[in-house]
Protein backbone atom coordinates (compact mmCIF):
# COMPACT_ATOMS: atom_id res chain seq x y z
CA UNK A 1 0.00 0.00 0.00
CA UNK A 2 1.45 3.33 -1.02
CA UNK A 3 1.34 6.35 1.22
CA UNK A 4 -0.98 9.09 0.06
CA UNK A 5 -1.57 12.65 1.04
CA UNK A 6 -4.57 13.80 3.02
CA UNK A 7 -7.97 13.82 1.22
CA UNK A 8 -6.54 12.03 -1.78
CA UNK A 9 -8.60 9.52 -3.66
CA UNK A 10 -6.58 6.36 -3.96
CA UNK A 11 -8.82 4.20 -6.14
CA UNK A 12 -10.35 0.76 -5.74
CA UNK A 13 -7.11 -1.04 -6.51
CA UNK A 14 -5.62 0.36 -3.34
CA UNK A 15 -8.72 -0.57 -1.36
CA UNK A 16 -8.57 -4.07 -2.72
CA UNK A 17 -5.16 -4.52 -1.21
CA UNK A 18 -6.68 -4.88 2.24
CA UNK A 19 -10.39 -5.31 1.57
CA UNK A 20 -10.31 -7.98 -1.06
CA UNK A 21 -13.71 -9.52 -0.33
CA UNK A 22 -15.51 -6.19 -0.11
CA UNK A 23 -13.96 -4.97 -3.35
CA UNK A 24 -14.83 -8.19 -5.15
CA UNK A 25 -18.44 -8.16 -4.07
CA UNK A 26 -18.69 -4.48 -4.86
CA UNK A 27 -17.40 -5.22 -8.35
CA UNK A 28 -20.09 -7.84 -8.83
CA UNK A 29 -22.85 -5.58 -7.60
CA UNK A 30 -24.88 -3.12 -9.64
CA UNK A 31 -22.91 -0.24 -8.18
CA UNK A 32 -19.68 -1.70 -9.43
CA UNK A 33 -20.64 -1.66 -13.09
CA UNK A 34 -19.12 0.45 -15.76
CA UNK A 35 -21.99 2.83 -16.32
CA UNK A 36 -21.93 4.09 -12.79
CA UNK A 37 -18.56 5.66 -13.29
CA UNK A 38 -20.48 8.35 -15.10
CA UNK A 39 -21.94 9.36 -11.76
CA UNK A 40 -18.76 8.85 -9.79
CA UNK A 41 -15.47 7.21 -10.70
CA UNK A 42 -14.39 6.91 -7.06
CA UNK A 43 -15.89 3.45 -6.50
CA UNK A 44 -15.50 2.63 -2.77
CA UNK A 45 -14.56 6.21 -2.02
CA UNK A 46 -17.74 7.58 -3.54
CA UNK A 47 -19.46 6.56 -0.28
CA UNK A 48 -16.58 6.12 2.15
CA UNK A 49 -14.81 9.32 1.20
CA UNK A 50 -11.20 9.80 0.08
CA UNK A 51 -9.02 7.01 1.40
CA UNK A 52 -5.68 8.79 1.33
CA UNK A 53 -5.45 9.36 5.07
CA UNK A 54 -6.78 5.91 5.78
CA UNK A 55 -4.12 4.29 3.64
CA UNK A 56 -1.41 6.50 5.01
CA UNK A 57 -2.42 5.61 8.56
CA UNK A 58 -2.08 1.94 7.80
CA UNK A 59 -5.80 1.33 7.82
CA UNK A 60 -6.69 3.29 10.94
CA UNK A 61 -10.49 3.02 11.04
CA UNK A 62 -10.86 6.52 12.42
CA UNK A 63 -9.51 8.03 9.23
CA UNK A 64 -12.21 6.76 6.87
CA UNK A 65 -15.95 7.13 6.76
CA UNK A 66 -17.26 3.97 8.34
CA UNK A 67 -21.01 3.56 8.32
CA UNK A 68 -21.05 1.12 11.18
CA UNK A 69 -20.05 4.02 13.39
CA UNK A 70 -22.31 6.59 11.76
CA UNK A 71 -25.86 7.39 12.68
CA UNK A 72 -28.52 6.02 10.41
CA UNK A 73 -29.18 9.50 9.04
CA UNK A 74 -25.56 9.94 8.07
CA UNK A 75 -25.62 6.58 6.33
CA UNK A 76 -28.73 7.54 4.43
CA UNK A 77 -27.17 10.84 3.42
CA UNK A 78 -24.39 8.98 1.63
CA UNK A 79 -26.94 7.11 -0.49
CA UNK A 80 -29.01 10.20 -1.12
CA UNK A 81 -26.02 11.93 -2.68
CA UNK A 82 -26.90 10.09 -5.85
CA UNK A 83 -30.35 8.68 -5.25
CA UNK A 84 -32.42 11.64 -4.16
CA UNK A 85 -34.44 11.78 -7.31
CA UNK A 86 -37.45 10.17 -8.88
CA UNK A 87 -39.12 7.72 -6.51
CA UNK A 88 -36.62 8.49 -3.73
CA UNK A 89 -37.17 12.24 -3.88
CA UNK A 90 -39.34 12.31 -0.77
CA UNK A 91 -37.25 10.06 1.45
CA UNK A 92 -35.60 12.70 3.63
CA UNK A 93 -38.12 13.63 6.30
CA UNK A 94 -40.56 10.94 5.19
CA UNK A 95 -42.05 8.45 7.64
CA UNK A 96 -39.37 5.79 7.16
CA UNK A 97 -36.60 8.35 7.55
CA UNK A 98 -38.33 9.82 10.61
CA UNK A 99 -38.59 6.37 12.19
CA UNK A 100 -34.88 5.87 11.58
CA UNK A 101 -35.20 3.22 8.95
CA UNK A 102 -31.93 3.29 7.08
CA UNK A 103 -31.31 2.42 3.46
CA UNK A 104 -29.27 -0.58 4.56
CA UNK A 105 -32.17 -1.95 6.59
CA UNK A 106 -33.72 -2.94 3.27
CA UNK A 107 -30.91 -2.80 0.72
CA UNK A 108 -27.58 -4.55 0.53
CA UNK A 109 -24.88 -2.33 -0.89
CA UNK A 110 -21.71 -4.40 -1.04
CA UNK A 111 -23.07 -7.78 -1.90
CA UNK A 112 -25.23 -8.41 -4.90
CA UNK A 113 -28.74 -8.34 -3.56
CA UNK A 114 -32.02 -9.42 -4.99
CA UNK A 115 -32.67 -7.89 -8.38
CA UNK A 116 -31.88 -4.42 -9.48
CA UNK A 117 -33.21 -3.06 -6.18
CA UNK A 118 -30.44 -4.83 -4.21
CA UNK A 119 -32.98 -5.93 -1.64
CA UNK A 120 -31.78 -7.84 1.38
CA UNK A 121 -34.58 -10.37 1.51
CA UNK A 122 -35.50 -12.99 -1.01
CA UNK A 123 -38.72 -11.22 -1.78
CA UNK A 124 -40.03 -7.76 -1.19
CA UNK A 125 -43.10 -8.76 0.80
CA UNK A 126 -41.01 -10.75 3.26
CA UNK A 127 -38.79 -7.73 3.70
CA UNK A 128 -41.69 -5.40 4.51
CA UNK A 129 -43.18 -7.97 6.90
CA UNK A 130 -40.07 -7.88 9.06
CA UNK A 131 -41.46 -4.63 10.51
CA UNK A 132 -45.09 -4.68 9.40
CA UNK A 133 -46.01 -7.97 11.10
CA UNK A 134 -49.73 -7.38 11.20
CA UNK A 135 -49.89 -7.31 7.43
CA UNK A 136 -49.01 -11.00 7.42
CA UNK A 137 -52.41 -11.76 8.93
CA UNK A 138 -54.12 -9.59 6.36
CA UNK A 139 -52.39 -11.30 3.47
CA UNK A 140 -53.61 -14.67 4.73
CA UNK A 141 -57.23 -13.62 4.86
CA UNK A 142 -59.75 -15.16 2.51
CA UNK A 143 -60.26 -12.01 0.48
CA UNK A 144 -56.91 -10.66 -0.59
CA UNK A 145 -55.02 -9.15 -3.48
CA UNK A 146 -52.82 -11.71 -5.28
CA UNK A 147 -49.78 -10.98 -3.13
CA UNK A 148 -49.15 -14.34 -1.53
CA UNK A 149 -49.44 -15.78 -5.06
CA UNK A 150 -46.61 -13.50 -6.16
CA UNK A 151 -48.61 -11.38 -8.58
CA UNK A 152 -48.37 -8.17 -6.58
CA UNK A 153 -45.95 -6.69 -4.11
CA UNK A 154 -46.15 -3.92 -1.54
CA UNK A 155 -44.44 -1.42 -3.85
CA UNK A 156 -47.15 -1.84 -6.46
CA UNK A 157 -49.20 0.48 -4.26
CA UNK A 158 -46.74 2.02 -1.79
CA UNK A 159 -43.54 3.93 -2.28
CA UNK A 160 -41.40 2.98 0.72
CA UNK A 161 -39.05 5.86 -0.09
CA UNK A 162 -41.66 8.49 0.61
CA UNK A 163 -44.75 10.06 -0.80
CA UNK A 164 -46.82 13.17 -0.34
CA UNK A 165 -49.87 10.92 0.13
CA UNK A 166 -50.75 9.26 3.44
CA UNK A 167 -49.51 5.73 4.11
CA UNK A 168 -46.77 6.20 1.50
CA UNK A 169 -49.27 5.52 -1.25
CA UNK A 170 -47.51 5.92 -4.58
CA UNK A 171 -50.07 8.19 -6.16
CA UNK A 172 -51.71 11.54 -5.77
CA UNK A 173 -54.48 9.89 -3.76
CA UNK A 174 -55.57 6.42 -2.71
CA UNK A 175 -58.23 6.33 -5.40
CA UNK A 176 -55.83 7.41 -8.12
CA UNK A 177 -53.65 4.44 -7.21
CA UNK A 178 -56.58 2.00 -7.19
CA UNK A 179 -57.76 3.19 -10.61
CA UNK A 180 -54.47 2.12 -12.17
CA UNK A 181 -55.66 -1.50 -12.02
CA UNK A 182 -59.39 -0.85 -11.55
CA UNK A 183 -59.93 1.74 -14.27
CA UNK A 184 -63.50 0.54 -14.68
CA UNK A 185 -64.26 2.22 -11.36
CA UNK A 186 -62.78 5.55 -12.43
CA UNK A 187 -65.78 7.02 -14.19
CA UNK A 188 -66.86 9.72 -13.60
CA UNK A 189 -70.34 8.23 -13.53
CA UNK A 190 -73.71 9.78 -14.10
CA UNK A 191 -74.44 8.71 -10.54
CA UNK A 192 -71.34 8.60 -8.38
CA UNK A 193 -71.45 6.92 -5.00
CA UNK A 194 -70.07 9.66 -2.78
CA UNK A 195 -67.78 7.69 -0.44
CA UNK A 196 -66.45 5.59 -3.31
CA UNK A 197 -65.50 8.68 -5.25
CA UNK A 198 -63.69 10.11 -2.23
CA UNK A 199 -61.76 7.14 -0.90
CA UNK A 200 -61.98 3.43 -1.75
CA UNK A 201 -60.85 2.57 1.80
CA UNK A 202 -64.10 3.89 3.23
CA UNK A 203 -65.47 0.44 2.35
CA UNK A 204 -62.44 -1.70 1.41
CA UNK A 205 -59.32 -2.86 3.21
CA UNK A 206 -56.81 -3.44 0.41
CA UNK A 207 -54.52 -5.52 2.64
CA UNK A 208 -57.03 -8.29 3.20
CA UNK A 209 -60.34 -9.12 4.78
CA UNK A 210 -62.41 -12.08 5.88
CA UNK A 211 -65.35 -10.41 4.13
CA UNK A 212 -65.99 -10.69 0.43
CA UNK A 213 -64.34 -8.22 -1.92
CA UNK A 214 -61.94 -6.88 0.72
CA UNK A 215 -64.83 -5.15 2.50
CA UNK A 216 -64.26 -3.61 5.91
CA UNK A 217 -67.35 -5.27 7.39
CA UNK A 218 -70.07 -7.70 6.44
CA UNK A 219 -72.83 -6.41 4.23
CA UNK A 220 -75.61 -5.39 4.88
CA UNK A 221 -74.20 -3.91 8.09
CA UNK A 222 -71.42 -2.09 6.27
CA UNK A 223 -74.01 -0.31 4.11
CA UNK A 224 -76.19 0.39 7.13
CA UNK A 225 -73.39 2.38 8.71
CA UNK A 226 -74.44 5.15 6.35
CA UNK A 227 -77.87 4.13 5.13
CA UNK A 228 -80.85 4.14 7.42
CA UNK A 229 -83.50 5.42 5.08
CA UNK A 230 -87.07 4.21 5.55
CA UNK A 231 -88.02 0.70 4.54
CA UNK A 232 -85.29 -1.87 4.07
CA UNK A 233 -82.13 0.19 4.73
CA UNK A 234 -83.17 0.77 8.33
CA UNK A 235 -84.35 -2.79 8.87
CA UNK A 236 -82.51 -5.00 11.32
CA UNK A 237 -81.43 -8.15 9.52
CA UNK A 238 -81.10 -10.70 12.27
CA UNK A 239 -81.31 -14.48 12.41
CA UNK A 240 -84.98 -14.36 11.49
CA UNK A 241 -84.05 -12.99 8.06
CA UNK A 242 -81.59 -15.62 6.96
CA UNK A 243 -83.44 -16.47 3.78
CA UNK A 244 -84.14 -12.97 2.56
CA UNK A 245 -82.50 -11.39 -0.42
CA UNK A 246 -81.44 -8.40 1.66
CA UNK A 247 -78.90 -10.44 3.55
CA UNK A 248 -78.41 -13.72 1.69
CA UNK A 249 -75.35 -14.07 -0.57
CA UNK A 250 -74.22 -10.51 -1.33
CA UNK A 251 -77.01 -8.88 0.69
CA UNK A 252 -77.60 -5.29 -0.48
CA UNK A 253 -75.36 -5.84 -3.47
CA UNK A 254 -77.71 -8.51 -4.81
CA UNK A 255 -79.73 -5.61 -6.16
CA UNK A 256 -77.49 -2.55 -5.79
CA UNK A 257 -74.91 -4.11 -8.08
CA UNK A 258 -73.41 -0.94 -9.54
CA UNK A 259 -72.51 0.42 -6.12
CA UNK A 260 -69.31 2.14 -7.29
CA UNK A 261 -71.31 4.30 -9.67
CA UNK A 262 -73.90 3.92 -12.37
CA UNK A 263 -73.94 5.31 -15.87
CA UNK A 264 -77.60 4.49 -16.38
CA UNK A 265 -80.11 7.37 -16.43
CA UNK A 266 -82.25 5.39 -13.98
CA UNK A 267 -79.30 4.28 -11.89
CA UNK A 268 -79.52 6.65 -8.95
CA UNK A 269 -79.92 3.81 -6.48
CA UNK A 270 -77.21 1.79 -8.24
CA UNK A 271 -79.57 -0.98 -9.42
CA UNK A 272 -79.04 -0.26 -13.12
Amino acid sequence: MTASSSADYIGIQECRGCHEDAAASYGASLHGQKGFTQKSDHACEACHGPGGDHAAAGGDASTITSFSKKTRSAGNAACLQCHEQGAVMHFAGGIHDARKVSCTDCHRIHHPGQGAELLKATDEIALCLTCHHTMRSDLMKASHHPMREGKMTCSDCHNPHGSTTDALVAGDSINDKCYECHAEKRGPFLWDHVPAREDCTHCHDPHGSNHQRLLNARVPYLCQRCHSEPRHPGTLYDASNVNTRAIYNRACLNCHATVHGSNHPSGQTFMR
Binding site: M89, A183, E184, G187, F189, S262, N263, H264, G267, R272
Partner: peptide, 18 residues
Protein backbone atom coordinates in the same frame (compact mmCIF):
# COMPACT_ATOMS: atom_id res chain seq x y z
CA UNK B 1 -81.07 -3.47 -18.82
CA UNK B 2 -78.08 -2.36 -16.79
CA UNK B 3 -75.19 -0.05 -17.60
CA UNK B 4 -71.79 -1.62 -17.07
CA UNK B 5 -68.50 0.21 -16.62
CA UNK B 6 -68.24 2.96 -19.23
CA UNK B 7 -65.22 3.74 -21.38
CA UNK B 8 -63.21 6.52 -19.81
CA UNK B 9 -59.95 8.36 -20.19
CA UNK B 10 -57.51 10.17 -17.97
CA UNK B 11 -54.55 12.37 -18.77
CA UNK B 12 -52.17 13.52 -16.09
CA UNK B 13 -49.53 16.21 -16.42
CA UNK B 14 -47.02 16.33 -13.61
CA UNK B 15 -43.94 18.01 -12.24
CA UNK B 16 -41.81 17.02 -9.24
CA UNK B 17 -38.81 18.88 -7.96
CA UNK B 18 -36.39 18.62 -5.06
Amino acid sequence: QMALAPDNEAAKYFFNGS
